[in-house]
Design a protein around this nucleic acid. Structure first.
Length: 127
DNA sequence: CGAGTGATTGTTCGC
DNA sequence: GCGAACAATCACTCG
């Protein structure tokens, strides 16, 4: 047990995320044709540690509460559990999220590169 | 039949 | 520094 660095889990460095606010044109999810829409536009924001936790929590919750239908209740349960979780447990998810963000950063760099190349000049046409 | 809604926290950007 | 907005999930609901 080395020093329990119970400090706030924020070893995250500021990564340059592309502006997600100005959504020029949200691609219709109905477009099942062709490749996943992830390749069409900028990579979406990676899920946060909380979401990774929810991903696992979801299954457990559904198994213990098969009567639950909407995610709203699960979301609440997740938030409550998340707050009761210990720092060490949360760190596990933080670590995943951090790693994922690194990959995302890379994806953005590549995406930007392609954009300049002209491959993704624009959404010429979904079809 | 299609797309939005709702609830949770985390992360990031703009000013 | 704060506010706004978006990330996944999935039954339900409106037009």
């Amino acid at each position: 047990m080395k020093t329990r660095s119970q400090t706030a889990p924020k070893p995250l460095k500021t990564v340059r995320l592309p502006p997600v606010k100005p959504r020029p044109k949200p691609p219709p999810p109905s477009r099942k044709k062709g490749q996943p829409l992830v390749d069409r536009r900028r990579p979406k924001k990676p899920p946060t540690a909380f979401f990774y936790f929810m991903e696992d929590f979801r299954k457990t919750y559904k198994e213990e509460n098969p009567s639950v239908k909407s995610m709203q209740e699960v979301g609440k349960a997740c938030g409550e559990k998340w707050n009761t979780m210990t720092f060490e447990e949360r760190v596990k998810y933080y670590d995943i999220a951090t790693e994922k963000r690194a990959e995302y950063e890379k994806a953005v760099a590549e995406f930007d590169k392609k954009k300049e190349s002209g491959e993704l000049s624009e959404e010429s046409d979904y079809d």
